[in-house]
Every structure is written in C-alpha cells, then in structure tokens.
Design a protein around this nucleic acid. Structure first.
Length: 458
RNA sequence: GGCGUCGUACCCAAGUGGUCUAAGGGAGCAGUUUGCAAAACUGUCAUUCAUCGGUUCGAAUCCGAUCGACGCCUCCA
C-alpha cells in the first residue's frame, strides 16, 4: 500500500519512501519548557502521535526523537522572574509535559534529548559553518549564519529574499549583522543571561534557537533522515534555518519530508477568559473531559486545517467517543477478539495512509458502528461478524486510542445499584428513582438496558 | 509590498473533474423500545457547495473576477 503525505517542501502530496526500507526516522519539535504546554501544543503532538501509530500499524519500525528546548530567551526570563535556576524551571515543566502527554495517551519518543546536554555538538556544527564560509563572528562574540552564502535559503517557506519586507522585529534587532535576515547560531553572553552560559571558541554565550534541532536530529538520526514535524509556525524561521544550517554544515541532504500541523484556535469566549486564551490538559480534565474526548476533538478535523476549539466541540467529542465505546462493550460481552478483520478495516487504514485523513477515517468507523448496531438490535449479528467487529475496534484503537477501560464500580455505588434493583423488582418506582438520583449525586449514572442495569461514571 | 491558505446544512466536518440529487458526528423533528429516565435502533434533515462569469459532454472540485475570513515574512506547536 502506498503511503502519501503532504510535504511542505514541495507543497504536494508525495508517496512516502523511507531511506531505509521498513524503517522510519522522525524528529518532532518538542516543547520549550518554560510553562505548561497547552491544548494547542498538544494538537501538534497528537498529530505526530497519530502519524507514528499509522507507521507502526502498517509494519514500519519507527525511530522517534523529540527535543526538549531547555534554553532560550523565554526560559531565561522565566528563571529570572521566578528567581530560580534554569534547571529548576526545566525539570518542572518537562515533568509536566511528560505527564500530560501520557494522559493523552501519546506514545513517548525513543529519546527526549535536552538542548543543554548537546552544547558541544552545536559548537562543532557552528565551527564547521564558520570553516565552510557560511557563518561569521561579530565583534561582540556572536556568530551568525549568512543567508546569502546558502543558495537554497527560503525553499521551505517559499520566501524570496527580494520580496522580504523589513519588519519592525528585524529592524529592532540589536545585533550587528551583515544581512538583516541573518540569524544567530551563537549568542554572546549578555548581562541579563545571568549564569546561563557555556564556553565556546568565541567566548561565553549560548546557542541560537535553531542550532539544537540541527545538532540533535542528526546526532540521533544521522545526517539524512525521513521526517521532521512541527507546527506551521515553525516553517519559518525555525525549520528554514535548520535546513540552511544542517545542509551547509554537513554538506549532506537533510530531511526528506517536512510535515506541519495547523494551529488550534480558541473559538469559545468562555474558554478564553482565563490566562491569555490557553487551556492546559489538567484544566480540561477538571472541566470534566476525558483524555479520549480530547483526543477525539483534536483529530476530528484534518491536521492541515485550523481547528476551532470550544466546549461545544468537546461535548460532541464526548458523545462520539461514547458511541464507539457502547458498541465496544456490547461486542466485548458477546465474543473474544479474533484474527480476521472486516473490509472496513482496510478502508480505514488506506484513508489514514492518504495524508492522515482522520475525519474521513472516523466516518468509516461510524458507518461501521451503525451497521453493527443495526444488526445487534435486529438480532441478526453472526458470531463471526461480532468477532470481526471487536477486532476492528481494537485494531483501529491502536491508532485512535479512544476506547475507555472499564472503571471498577466502588462497593458503595454497587450496593446502591443493587438496592435500586430490588426496589424496581417490587415496582417501588419512587424509591428506585430516588436511588438513581442519589447515585447520580455521587457521580455515577445508571441505565436500565434490556439485558440489565448498567452503571458508569458521569 | 511579497508569499500562501480558506469560505460545503443549524453547528462541526470529509469530498478537489463523472460513482455527489455531497460521507460522518452533534443538535432538531417523527417513530420503535421503556414503569419513568437514559441508552440503543429506525426514519427525516444541502438538487446544493461565498458570489458572478468562463473552460468542459460533465465542476463543490479547473480558470478568472468580486466579496469575506485568516496565516507567514527572525525565536510562536
């Protein structure tokens, strides 16, 4: 089966051809650990998770590296503001990131290298760039990349140097550079950097932002690897600069496939009332949404489209997730998992292999859900069909991860449910309704189904 | 100024030349079921794809114009 992805480099869908047959090397831009990652950051991380899971399910071996940016302007500012060390800030938010990613059932990367553990690698690369004539040292001890020395500069972002507008931000840059768009490889130490500095051939300082990804991606994956992902905002300048640096320093091909996910935007006023429009995973869990609902909401639109995030969207996601889980439980009671899968499974995978079309794949899944529900209700579902259905849901879940583990019902609740059952047998509706209300107060919901009473968390 | 994206039902969202009188989800409505509720199931819900032209035997899909929303052009996933 052909796997196709949209490549930012060519602005086209391309058939994926791994450098090494059967293996995928992917590097995904990780968080800058100066604050808790928000749901928008996680849209990108989840897109990457789905991508990785698709590779795994079709049989590729995946080597996945995600960096942790633990030194940059924002990190230093945060440390200064809170009167803490860079390491303290970094440890706290890295731990939170790992925790939140685990809640969202995002598969961990094989390595999570820290920028500050790879300073030497970055210095070597900068040295090579100076030697190759692609970088220059300024009087204050900073090193810049000369974009005029690299003819392909702008090929990812499709920027033409002649058409560039000198924005205020560029104009306001305090460094002295040959060309306004030249970017920092090494930043000379400044007073506000405090004790954040490393020794280098050019004196005390710290690496420019883009260096870490060039150094770490090639360190772990080799000079030439398959995929590099991130949010669209990384296309320029971050990834553009990475290409220039890496190709010029290593004199090698760099990345074959660049994939970028669009932004999530906050669509709902109520949601944006707090701190500058952001929501973190713990905040959303506190609002009563499950990891599965969050996953669903984030994959219910295509990764290259903007996603308007709102409470309505989450409520819809919650119901959709419930629908899938309903069928899963019904089938789970009837049969065990088998080896054969329905035709819909093939279709489901093919759609995902066409540039990760998660919304369309969910459509296939729901059509199948309706089909089986119909058969169940009319009592015409064969055992074989039930087995295949269960297998499909479980297999699809290796990518989607929307199935919810059955939670154990606490004894107290179970007692109330049993009490209500006996009341119902005696047709004591008043008591039974009262007990249902009491159970609801405790956060559980009871439903009287034809096959018996069911109880689950609200 | 340059580069680029998008506009599909009440909401979300696939589809990018014929299988589209447009998938799927949510909401609504009607029904089956039910002590009630809930859940589940069934039916219904865009002859139309921002607007106007053009190309074509054929367009939501290609081209042009217009209107509207938006992104990037140095540190933001």
């Amino acid at each position: 089966m052909n796997i196709k992805f949209y490549n930012t480099l060519s602005r086209k869908k391309e058939i994926f051809n791994p450098i090494k047959p059967g293996e995928v090397s992917m590097y995904t831009c990780g968080p800058t650990v100066y604050s808790r990652s928000h749901i928008g950051n996680f849209r990108t991380f989840l897109f990457e998770d789905i991508l990785k899971r698709v590779f795994l399910i079709v049989g590729y071996k995946v080597r996945h590296i995600m960096n942790i940016t633990d030194v940059d302007d924002k990190m230093i500012k945060k440390a200064n503001d809170e009167n803490k060390t860079l390491t303290e800030i970094s440890l706290k938010y890295t731990a939170e990131f790992i925790e939140d990613a685990a809640i969202l059932k995002i598969l961990p990367a094989d390595e999570l290298p820290l920028a500050t553990d790879n300073i030497q690698e970055m210095i070597s690369m900068i040295t090579a760039l100076i030697k190759n004539g692609n970088a220059y040292l300024t009087e204050n001890g900073s090193v810049f990349f000369s974009i005029e020395s690299y003819k392909d500069y702008g090929k990812l972002a499709h920027l033409d140097l002649k058409g560039l507008k000198q924005t205020d931000r560029v104009a306001a840059d305090e460094y002295t550079k040959d060309h306004p768009q030249d970017f920092a490889l090494w930043k000379a130490w400044k007073e506000e950097d405090g004790d954040v500095s490393w020794d280098s051939p050019w004196g005390k300082g710290r690496p420019g932002w883009h260096m870490e990804c060039s150094a770490m991606s090639t360190k772990y994956l080799g000079n030439h690897f398959d995929i590099h992902c991130g949010g669209v905002d990384n296309i320029f300048p971050h990834h553009e600069n990475e290409i220039a640096q890496s190709c010029a320093a290593l004199n090698s091909e760099f990345v074959n496939l660049w994939m970028h996910s669009e932004h999530l935007i906050m669509a709902d006023e109520k949601m944006s009332k707090s701190l500058g429009n952001i929501k973190t995973i713990p905040e959303l869990l506190a609002d009563g949404y499950t990891a599965e609902s969050l996953r669903f909401a984030l994959i219910s639109s295509h990764y290259r489209s903007k996603l308007a995030f709102s409470h309505i969207k989450l409520e819809e996601a919650k119901k959709s997730v419930h629908r899938i889980n309903e069928l899963f439980q019904k089938l789970n009671k009837k049969v065990d998992v088998g080896n054969s899968l329905p035709d819909e499974y093939e279709e489901f995978i093919e759609i995902l292999c066409d540039d990760l079309n998660t919304p369309k794949a969910l459509g296939v899944l729901f059509n199948y859900v309706r089909k089986l529900n119909h058969k169940i209700d009319n009592d015409i579902l064969s055992k074989n069909e039930a087995t295949m259905g269960l297998s499909f849901l479980i297999k699809a879940d290796e990518i989607l991860s929307l199935l919810i583990k059955q939670t154990d019902i606490p004894d107290k609740i179970a007692q109330l449910v049993a009490k209500r059952e006996s009341a119902r047998k005696e047709k004591n509706w008043k008591l039974s309704d009262h007990l249902r209300e009491e159970i609801k107060q405790k956060g559980w919901k009871v439903e009287d189904l034809p096959e018996g009473t069911k109880c689950y968390p609200l």
